[in-house]
């Protein structure tokens, strides 16, 4: 079966280095660049808790 992405126009979401988004734009690729910042204000402990909470809420939702 043909791989879907190869049959479509490439449309990119760029998350991270802004220069990668600029390069894609220069190649006339459709791209939206996120203004990314580390989640939980960069606090890794808090971030782990957020992820754990997210998983728990998914389990509850699915369950």
């Amino acid at each position: 079966m043909e791989f879907k992405l190869f049959k479509e126009e490439l449309k990119v979401v760029n998350i991270g280095l802004a220069s990668f988004g600029e390069n894609l734009k220069n190649e006339n690729t459709k791209v939206v660049s996120l203004k990314w910042a580390p989640p939980a204000l960069g606090d890794q402990k808090l971030f782990s808790l957020v992820k754990k909470y997210k998983r728990l809420s998914e389990i509850e939702y699915k369950g």
């Binding site: 979401v13 760029n14 998350i15 991270g16 996120l34 992820k51």
Partner: peptide, 29 residues
């Protein structure tokens, strides 16, 4: 420049590839 993936997908709903270059500890998320 949107601040979230959800906002990015509102601007470009049929996005089919994400290019991720955030610090390694955030990349999996």
């Amino acid at each position: 420049s949107p601040h979230s993936l959800e906002m990015a997908l509102k601007i470009q709903p049929d996005s089919n590839l994400a290019l991720i270059s955030v610090p390694g500890e955030n990349a999996a998320y």
